[in-house]
Amino acid sequence: MNVITDHLPEFGSGLLLTVELTLLSLAGALVAGIVVAAMRVSPVGVLRAAGMAYVETLQNIPLLVWLVLAVFGLPEIGVKAGLFTTAVVVISLYQGAYTAEAVRSGINAVPAGQGEAARALGLTFTQSLRLVILPQALRTVVQPLGNIAIMTLMNTALAAAVGVVELTAAANRVNLAEAQPIWIFVAAGLAYMALSGVVGLATGTLERKLAILR
């Protein structure tokens, strides 16, 4: 047990970085996901195709490959960004693909009459999406978005592989010094569980608050 208390500062800063990575990536994924979902339902064929290409490309290559590619490839083409920033952007774009699919299923669940009524009133396609369709669509996909949030939290551990010292990397460092893997990684695992518990609670609360009367 001492191994944990002795290294609390390392664990603490790792945990903090994990939380920061998760929150920033989630915000990014939500923005990317909504934009891409909007492209996928747009009346403009080119946008639909681009949205689909985005989702297929991002989802069909592992996140770890994207991370390694970005961390080592971007400097080659002259893009210099910190490790943390690179990780946030890559995880955002990757989770954005999954978010887009969830949001799109929400959009498809909104009755067609809602969009027709909006357009019949003179709202443009973008206005009806933003003011009428998306607010209803997002409410129906709180649960799937919560699952994506948990998946994002878990995936931040991959940032360890490219040198971001988040919780998993911090645990690994402590283990290199102390060689007590069971205690150290069980503690890290429990911390992840606690965090996803918080996400789950938040999802449940949001879902109850946002449910629309039909």
Binding site: P111, G113, Q114, E116, A117, A120, G122, V132, L213, R214
Partner: peptide, 15 residues
């Protein structure tokens, strides 16, 4: 379209 109002069978009020 803004100049031509439409009323639907299923109301289609924004829920």
């Amino acid at each position: 379209r803004a100049d031509v109002g439409m009323v639907f069978q299923s109301f289609n009020l924004f829920q």
